[in-house]
């Protein structure tokens, strides 16, 4: 693959819960190209979210190499991982995870605040994105006044406001009805095709997985190519 954005080899992650060791990843190898839209499927508990958390710098691997946009994530301190996360990664979750006390717009601006781009006007490109997402007129509402589909679209805007190198979507349609799912998925495909946004998406639904260029399957902490 030419100029990959993610290169993972021999990745292992063991959670320690008290005295018990829970192996979540048992040697994962994966390469993702720049501009690729990758779907990750697999049963519950197979380690998909753990893989995303490591790639996104929310937790550190137990062993193995993870290179994201040229940076090795394996041996970073907490602070370095935080800094990397700010610039390179956007997250979307199944449960939207908007901050409940802030309006949609403030949720977006909060992500911008941590990237250090506080106060600078939003780019023309980002305003186009808000139009694409169809949420411009909903930005001054708090999350509880928004439908699930609207909340997820706000979460997409928030994930992309810092122009991250990769977008990690962990079951983004898991809580949505078919119509809203389709809308979110076509938006992701649009983002990928028009802006060349690299996307990794976890899903249970084969139809959703089909939106990606390529699908990999996780089972018991290992990856298999379809």
């Amino acid at each position: 693959m030419n100029n990959p954005i993610i290169e993972i080899s021999g990745l292992e992650k063991i959670y320690r819960v008290g005295d018990v060791e829970v192996p979540a990843l048992r040697g994962v190898d994966l390469t993702v190209g720049r501009g690729e839209f990758l779907s990750v499927v697999g049963p519950s508990g197979s380690g998909k979210s753990t893989l995303f958390h490591i790639v996104g710098g929310l937790t550190s691997p137990s062993s193995g190499a993870v290179i994201v946009d040229g940076r090795d994530m394996a041996n970073l301190t907490d602070i370095e991982r935080t800094r990397l996360r700010r610039g390179k990664v956007g997250f979307i979750f199944q449960k939207y995870n908007l901050l409940p006390t802030l309006t949609a717009m403030d949720n977006i601006l909060m992500a911008r605040h941590f990237s250090g781009a506080n106060g600078q006007p939003l780019s023309e490109q980002f305003n186009d994105l808000l139009k694409l997402l169809g949420i411009q007129h909903r930005l001054h509402h708090k999350p509880r006044a928004l439908s699930g589909g609207e909340q997820q679209r706000v979460a997409i805007a928030r994930a992309l406001v810092n122009h991250p190198a990769i977008l990690l979507a962990d079951e983004p349609t898991g809580n949505l009805d078919t119509q809203n799912s389709d809308r979110v998925l076509s938006i992701l495909r649009d983002l990928n095709q028009r802006l060349g946004q690299t996307i990794l998406m976890i899903t249970h639904n084969p139809e959703a997985a089909a939106y990606g260029h390529r699908t990999v399957t996780m089972r018991d902490g290992r990856l298999r190519e379809e």
Binding site: D78, L99, M110
Partner: peptide, 8 residues
């Protein structure tokens, strides 16, 4: 959430 958004 804040940490996922990049809060240290």
């Amino acid at each position: 959430i804040l940490k996922a958004l990049g809060a240290s």
